[in-house]
């Protein structure tokens, strides 16, 4: 049977890898933004960052090795998206799915730690700002990690 939590985690990962924002209620300008965190009018996403809601800078299409770290992080989240879906299908082999879910858990933890450290140093003066700085992208990464853990558990049960 297909593992629903794995598929859901994959879709979430692909959404935060590609999409900047989704409108919820346009008349009230209500949107869900998938930024990881925001600091001093700069919104940081997996694919780049947005300064003052206008200028977009991405190192994804820069020269290697300058773009290597950001490219790796983007590829990580893209890989999590694709592999979560592939490992959750009916015909996926047990051993391969097990390995993929473990890799996904490892990668999403790594992403959370990297951005967690960056955010920690940003709000070092006042830790109370921690929740103000974090965006939906970070929360969704936590959800992806949890869903992958659930998927791994349900796979082991099967």
């Amino acid at each position: 049977m297909a593992i629903k939590s794995g598929i859901f985690a994959g879709i979430l990962a692909l959404i935060i890898a590609f999409i900047a924002e989704i409108p919820i209620y346009p008349p009230e300008n209500l949107i869900v933004s998938f930024k990881i965190f925001a600091s001093e009018n700069i919104d940081f996403y997996f694919w780049g960052y947005n300064i003052n809601g206008g200028t977009i800078i991405t190192s994804l299409i820069g020269l290697i090795p300058e773009s290597f770290i950001s490219l790796c992080i983007w590829l990580m989240i893209f890989f999590i998206g694709v592999s979560s879906i592939m490992a959750s299908t009916k015909k996926a082999k047990f051993n391969n799915s097990l390995k993929l879910f473990k890799i996904n858990i490892l990668l999403s933890s790594l992403i959370l730690i990297i951005f967690g450290i960056i955010i920690f140093f940003l709000v070092l003066v006042n830790i109370a700002f921690f929740l103000n700085v974090i965006g939906f992208g970070y929360y969704f990464t936590i959800i992806i990690l949890i869903l992958n853990l659930f998927a791994l558990r349900s796979l082991k049960k099967e």
Partner: peptide
């Protein structure tokens, strides 16, 4: 397209970053 966003104009779907 990366950083896709939706607007109620033409074009409906747009993106901040375009990988050639």
């Amino acid at each position: 397209p990366l950083g896709v966003y939706f607007q109620f104009e033409n074009p409906f779907v747009n993106s901040h970053v375009r990988i050639p």
